[in-house]
């Protein structure tokens, strides 16, 4: 579905991505993990159209991905940035409706909003509340729902669990896994490797400069000793501890 080949991107004189390649197949939940600052967010930004790459190609559904963020949404890719960026001054409902900006089928939008409220029940009674007054977890739910309102085929999630309480983190991971079960393809950037590896189908491990250090089916990686040593604790497979590197 999505094929990124040899992507390059710069922030001024700094080469953040020096040739990143990965792919996401339909129906998968692909995890992109790595230490801080290696280029995971930058990769998502380039795919989402926020950032202009300086080299390489991004192919979506067989054709090169062109245009800015709005075109990317219309093409079926939704992006939930780091720090959520919900509109604090608008209500929850207004935020949700904004997610459907590029859609033209007004009636279906109402049905979709209803579906999101089922997915995240706490949002129902917050519909008319000012989004800035929501808790971190609620804002994250809102951000994801807003992205889903554009009926995307691919969802890009940038560190959704950052700054959230452990209980909420667990629920969130479950919800993301369920999204994949419902048929939404997901590319998930996370620092919480242990939990990511449990819900993902495949995993990419990124190193500084955006290089993919290793990749493969999540189950395989989870069992591999070097992977566990580098990214999980040294405990044997049957004694996994959630460790954030």
């Amino acid at each position: 579905m999505l094929a990124v080949k040899d992507l390059r991107a710069r922030y001024g004189p700094i080469e953040a991505l020096q040739g990143t390649s990965l792919e996401v197949r339909e129906g998968e939940l692909v995890g992109l993990v790595g230490h801080n600052g290696v280029g995971k967010s930058t990769t998502l930004k380039a795919i989402a159209g926020v950032l202009r790459p300086s080299g390489g190609t991004i192919e979506w559904l067989g054709a090169p991905l062109r245009g800015g963020a709005a075109a990317t949404i219309r093409a079926g890719i939704a992006y939930v940035p780091e720090d959520r960026r919900i509109f604090a001054g608008l209500t929850v409902e207004e935020n949700l409706r904004l997610g459907a900006t590029t859609r033209t089928d007004a009636d279906a939008v109402a049905a979709d909003i209803e579906r999101e409220l089922e997915r995240f029940p706490p949002l129902r009674k917050l519909l008319t509340r000012r989004a800035g007054n929501l808790s971190g977890g609620e804002q994250q739910m809102l951000a994801i729902s807003r992205a889903l309102l554009s009926r995307p085929r691919l969802l890009l999630l940038d560190e959704p669990t950052l700054g959230l309480a452990p209980i909420i983190i667990d629920t969130l991971f479950e919800t993301i896994a369920r999204l994949r079960d419902e048929g939404v393809t997901v590319l998930l950037v996370e620092q919480n490797v242990a939990k990511t590896v449990r819900i993902a189908d495949r995993l990419y491990v990124m190193a500084p400069g955006g290089r993919i250090e290793r990749s493969g089916p999540a189950a395989e990686l989870e069992r591999s000793p070097e992977f566990r040593a580098g990214y999980l604790s040294l405990a044997p497979a049957h004694e996994r501890k959630a460790v954030t590197p």
Binding site: A9, R10, Y11, G12, P13, G49, V50, L51, R52, P53, R66, G67, G68, A69, A70, A71, T72, R74
Partner: peptide
């Protein structure tokens, strides 16, 4: 040459991108 700061892809600034 001073490298240009990251900018949205062509069309991103318009918010319209490819013709609807």
């Amino acid at each position: 040459a001073a490298a240009a700061p990251p900018a949205p892809r062509p069309g991103a600034a318009e918010g319209g991108g490819a013709a609807a």
